[in-house]
Structures are given as structure tokens and as C-alpha cells.
Design a protein around this nucleic acid. Structure first.
Lengths: 391, 391
DNA sequence: TTTGTTTGTCTATTGAATAAACAAAGTTTA
DNA sequence: TAAACTTTGTTTATTCAATAGACAAACAAA
């Protein structure tokens, strides 16, 4: 049943609108906030009073006069609290402590070569502890912990299956909440990455974007009309197992010709081995990058092929979603230089004409930990939403 | 800028909630409506008074007492007005006149073997005229006209490209609005069909469903969280040009191995010709159905193959969206008997385990004109929304 | 017949918004 | 330099859509 409206809910929603205005437009005056929101200036004045009392915003020295009295400027108090975001990789754990506006205050990374659950949980707890200790004093403290995990995560935050970690049915959320007594969100890493790019990365300007996470496998996060779309059970975005070659090789999932057999980090490494690239045992993506930097012809040809295959699958996504933007993130963003031209070439040549209009293809900024920032942002938003609840 | 809340908007939204409750739960008492909505019974009483005044609902004979006073029952006045829905086919025009609850009052179909724009416009106008004349007298009259068209339709209702009609850049919406002075909505036929199934068809119980329209080509309508998702320009759902065989034959769109080369009506007819089915010149889907009914082995084998190919593409959709339901509609719903087992077989065998949970595959009910009903529903909803605006 | 229950109407109250008056603090003009 | 005007922010009276609860009507149960 759709929730009905009453005065309490009206006030809460309008207060959230004013707070969001101040967050996005710092510094801003009450008069401007009233003008931009459409709310009466008396209403804005009283809502702002409450936000000041709650220390979510603060006033700063006067602004410039535009002919009359100088305005008092309001700014979002991003240091009112902190969020933790954890990117749970196959062999690493990366964590950030961010303020309420997503600015990274501290980051910590540890290698984790033994991804068994109990060992990983211990490492994660250590990282979280270190970040909590590093948080400056603030009115609200650490308001939430977000975890981006590779694999199938349901809407209750249970990791049902993480093949690359060897996990099944783990309640990481419950385990961390009981340890720290702080709200925890567990989310699929591609979903988290999509949200991180939407909030802080190359996806900032767009409300309809698909983030393609190209790591060992391929996953995707789907932002539609500004919101993360997760499907009925939270399992949307498994585009790595979208078949682009139904007569092709069998995938580990049982289907044939899945996209991630052609265009993932694993595909790249397998192909490198197959064509006998001059590489050592247990070579990595970095080794191929080194070869490419040195203009090794076979390495360049291999990356060209990967770029084309990546582009082919992206065309399917563009035809299905008609998005504003597609972002390529995770490991293969590192080879942007060598694959981007071929990705674009394939898209230019084979995408339906109307679907090519207004579509932007971007690679993730390598310095932006999108997944960690994405889950931290989820926890910050949940905190602010509950904070505005009328007491 | 997000719209702010005030008393006027609060009342409008709550009134819409009450009206929707009455629509979905006819007949219902004020007391039940208050209980179900959470609104105060005095509030419901006053909102109901207005709806009665506006003739959108009516009272009926008393209901059963549950121990005290008998309730007065309220029903939605579906005959308060009428909507027209037009399904614009490649060689036919099919129209329905529905009441405000989508019940078909009159339907009219004409053959149209000359799909040039001016001729088609004339035929469409004739159908609309006939339906308007057939509409019973009512308080609001014909409140809107919806047109479902095959091809690329933008958000302003301009048909940018309809390859199977040979049209480019036609403002059918403006032309009909100027003729009839009634609000007109033009929508892609797959989008319309998805909404028709969601409202009145096999999709009624689901909020996340994908309607795959398998006609000459393949298109899809995407319902996410109860709403039609159209993409940034209105072009989402072009799954017919999702490549499932990148090394396959070239499609008319320029790409390779598109789904609709394997699993559409056109693919079926082409393949029938190719394998030398015992058919006359200009054979149709009906001819193949006749052969299948007579258990012609080649026809049955062909349909089996088509079923498998249909299933293969559907797996990609299931992995991408994690929907509750996929509906197969339009022309190939007619061969459900002969393809459904193979569709299901492929999906059972090759879909990721978690994505198979909670997914339901259905064929459209052939007697339900989903596309026409879908666009009629759009116009009805727009009318009711504007009607509830505070005057 | 009296008492209790349910439904629906009516009235007083609440409070979050708006409209507008007022105050404060600036700039501009005569 | 003082008066007039402008802009920003605060305060107050008003509006009205909701709620709470009293009351009325019409039933069922004891």
C-alpha cells in the first residue's frame, strides 16, 4: 500500500529537499534555497534552523550583496559524521573512510591471499577497526559501513555465491553488525561501482547509466532514472553471462559463448597464454600492460581484439537500455589506452543510429575507488534519511 | 528540481490513493478504505464526497453488516469516460474503445495494404471516428486516444523510424490531435504491449516484467518497479538487435547475428522457405501453423529450432534484468503449443541457478489485444491524474 | 428493550505550509 | 549626507488538509 501523506511526512520531505539543495550548492543563502526549491522563505528559514541545531549544516561569513542586505551563507557539514566503504577483492581488501560528502579521509588496503571466509572476515574487521580509529571526532561518528562484494548478493545483504572467493551463503552483514554495532550494507561490487561513478565519478551528470565492471569476470550495475536497479531478487546485471556467441565455447556457467569468455581479464590472460605471449608463469594484467607499453605487436593485437569484443557486448546493452552513458570499470579500465579506440570503432559501426545519439562511453578514472565509495554513499544516505525522520 | 510538498499536493496525492483503492477493490466501504490506506476516516469521508461529486465513483446498495451498521459500498465509475487504443500493424489497423477500467466496449479492425503515411492516417481517422461514434454518453466522453506503433518513437510521440511501414519522422500525434481535439499518446508497440499485459494480461501480478514482442522483428517493453522503462530517448528494448551470434549472418541493421534473425516471424518464414517446406508462394504464419497441426515433421522441427533460439535470447534478458516474468507476445504467441517446451528446456538448462528462481515465462493470451489496451490505459491514467488536480 | 458494535458525519484541534508584515543591513540616489 | 530603495532574514497571522474524537445512524447481540 502506497504511503499516505500527512504533515509530518511533508515536513520531512521538504527538509530533505532543503538539505540536498545545500549539499549540492554549498555555499548557498536561505533566499536562494527558497527560490530554487519553491518553498516559502519563512519555511526555509525554519527548516534551516533545525538543520543548524542538528549540526548537519553551518553558517559562514557573509556573502556578496546583490544590492541589499548581504546574505548569510550555508554549507553542508560534511564532517558531521563518517562512512566506511570496503571493496572486497579476490585477493585484497580495500577500505576508505569518507566524510558525509564522499570525500576520502583515510584509505587502507591489505593483501588477502587466503580468501576463506573466516580469514577474510578477520582481515575485514582489522581494516574496519583501523578506519574507525582513524576517524576524527564528530557529532555523529561513523554512521555506517558498506561492503562491495564480488558475486550474487540478495536484497537482505546475504552473499549467496561468490565463486571467485569460494563462498556460499555467507551473512557478512550480520557478522560485521554484531562486531561493530554500526549499520552495515552489503552490495554486489558492480552495483556499488555503478553508484560510486554516479555520485563521484564520470557518471555524475547522468541519470541513466550502465557501469560494466570488467574484472576476472564481467558484471554490471544499472542506474535508471537516478536509482540503482537491482531486479526482483537483487541479481540484475549479470551481463558477463549474456551470450554473444551461442555456437561458441562453453562457459563455466554452463551456457555457451558468454561475453566474459571474450572480454574479461581472465579472457585476456587466457588468450595471452594461448598465443604464446612472451610472459612468465602466473603472469598478470600488469605484465601485458608492460608489453603493450613496449609496443609488443602480439600484445597490441590481443588488446585490440579484446576491445572489439568488449564493444560488441556493449552494443547489446545500448540497444536494450538506451542509456545516456556506459562506463567501463574495474581491472580493464587499466588498458583504456589500448582498447578504447576499438571499443568506440565497433560501437560506431554497429550500433543502431538512433541509439548512438546521446550515448557516451567512458572509462572509469583509475584513481577513483568507485566500489568502495559507492557503498559508503549508500550508508551515508541511509543515515541522513533516518536523521531527518521527525523525532 | 524535486517538487516540494504543500497542502494542495498532499490532498491531490491522497485523493489519488483513495481513488486507486476504490478502483482495485470495488466494491469497498469508506471504513475499509480508511483502514487500508491509513488515512483518517474523516479524511476518507471528505475525499470520497468529492469523488462522488465528480462522478468518478458511485455508491451501491448496502453491504453486509459485520456486527454493526451496514456499510455503504463504493465502486469506481468505469463508465465515467472512455479511451481509444489503436494498434497500428504493418497491414492492419486495430482499434478498441474501452471504459476507464480497460474493459473493451467496441473494437474495430481494418485491413490496410497500403501503409503509406497519408493513406494510413486516413484509415486511422476512420477507425477513431467509428469508435467515437460508438461511445455511449458519459460524463467525460472520450478522454484520450492512444496509438501503438511499430518502430522508434521518441518521448514527444514522434515516430522517428518505422522500417516496416516505410515511415520516417512522422508526427502522427499532432495530426490526430488536430483532427479530434482529444489528447493523443503515441507509443512504441512493444512498450504498449508490455503495459497492456501488466494491466490486463498475464503480467497483472508482477512489477518487474519484460514483454518480448515477437512479430516480423523482435522488440521488447520493460516494466521495472511497476513502471514502463523507456531509456533516455524512449528507444529502450531493442532486443531484436541484441547480437547472440557475433560471427553469424549480417542483419539489416548492419550488425551480425542479431536475435531477430533467428527467432522472429520473419526468421521462421525465411527458414521455412529455405528448407523447402511444402508451402505456397507468399505463405504466412497460418500456413506453418496448419502444417504443424497436421504434424508435418519438418514444420515441427523448424518450430523446435525457433523455440530454442527464442529461449537463448531470453536467457540474456533474464541475466541482465533479473525480472519476475518474461512474456512472449505478438505474432509468435500463436505457436505457443509448438515452441513453449523448447523455450523452457533451453531456459531450464542454461540459465544461472539463482536467476531461475522466481522467474515465470508466459505467453500472451491471444485474445487480449495487449498493445491497444496498453496505450488506452496510458491515456486513461493521464486523464485521471489531471482530473484529480485541485481546481 | 437495552446494550454493544460498526459505519459514517461532524467539529475542534494541530501544525506545516503560505502570505505578508516587519526588522536588519546593505546599496543607490538626490 | 540623509533619504529612499533593495535584499535578506525573522516573525506573525492565516490557511487548510490532515487527525482525534464526539456524535449520529443503523445495525446485531444479549
Amino acid at each position: 500500500m502506497q504511503i499516505t501523506w500527512n504533515q509530518q511526512l511533508v515536513k520531512k520531505e521538504n527538509k530533505a529537499i532543503v538539505l540536498n539543495l545545500i549539499m549540492q550548492n554549498s555555499p548557498i543563502s536561505r533566499a536562494d534555497a527558497a527560490q530554487m526549491s519553491g518553498l516559502n522563505k519563512g519555511t526555509v528559514s525554519s527548516l534551516v534552523s533545525e538543520l543548524l541545531e542538528e549540526q548537519l549544516i553551518y553558517e559562514s561569513g557573509p556573502g556578496e550583496s546583490s544590492g541589499g542586505r548581504r546574505p548569510v551563507l550555508l554549507l553542508f557539514n560534511q564532517k558531521a559524521g563518517y562512512s566506511i566503504g570496503i571493496d572486497l577483492g579476490v585477493n585484497y581488501i580495500f577500505g576508505v573512510l569518507t566524510d558525509l560528502q564522499g570525500e576520502i579521509v583515510v584509505e587502507k588496503s591489505v593483501v588477502n591471499n587466503h580468501p576463506e571466509y573466516s580469514n577474510t572476515l578477520e582481515q575485514v574487521n582489522k581494516v574496519i577497526n583501523a578506519l574507525i580509529k582513524a576517524a576524527p571526532p564528530s557529532p555523529y561518528g561513523v554512521v555506517g559501513i558498506g561492503i562491495g562484494a564480488p558475486g550474487v548478493v540478495n536484497k537482505e545483504g546475504v552473499i549467496l555465491l561468490a565463486p571467485n572467493l569460494g563462498w556460499k551463503n555467507v551473512s557478512l552483514k550480520k557478522d560485521i553488525e554484531s562486531t561493530f554495532n554500526i549499520p552495515v550494507i552489503v552490495e554486489n561490487e558492480a552495483n556499488a561501482g555503478a553508484y560510486g561513478e554516479k555520485r563521484y565519478g564520470v557518471g555524475k551528470e547522468f541519470d541513466n547509466l550502465i557501469y560494466v565492471s570488467v574484472g576476472i569476470g564481467i558484471g554490471s550495475g544499472i542506474i535508471l532514472n537516478g536509482e540503482l536497479y537491482k531486479g526482483i531478487n537483487g541479481y540484475s546485471g549479470e551481463v558477463g553471462h549474456m551470450s554473444i556467441d551461442v555456437n561458441g565455447p562453453r562457459c563455466r556457467c554452463g551456457n555457451f559463448g558468454c561475453w566474459e569468455l571474450y572480454a574479461s581479464e581472465k579472457a585476456l590472460l587466457n588468450k595471452a597464454k594461448e598465443i604464446g605471449l612472451d610472459l612468465k608463469e602466473n603472469h598478470t594484467l600488469s605484465d601485458i600492460i608492460d608489453l603493450a607499453r613496449n609496443e609488443n605487436p602480439a600484445a597490441l593485437a590481443l588488446l585490440k581484439e579484446i576491445g572489439k569484443k568488449l564493444g560488441q557486448g556493449m552494443i547489446n546493452i545500448i540497444h536494450t537500455f538506451n542509456p545516456q552513458q556506459i562506463i567501463i570499470g574495474n581491472k580493464l579500465a587499466a588498458v583504456q589506452t589500448w582498447i578504447a579506440p576499438y571499443v568506440q570503432e565497433v560501437i560506431d559501426e554497429y550500433t543502431l543510429p538512433y541509439h548512438q545519439m546521446d550515448i557516451q562511453v567512458n572509462f572509469s578514472d583509475l584513481s577513483l575507488p568507485a566500489s568502495a565509495l559507492g557503498v559508503a554513499a549508500f550508508t551515508t544516505e541511509n543515515f541522513l534519511k533516518s536523521q531527518l525522520q521527525v523525532q
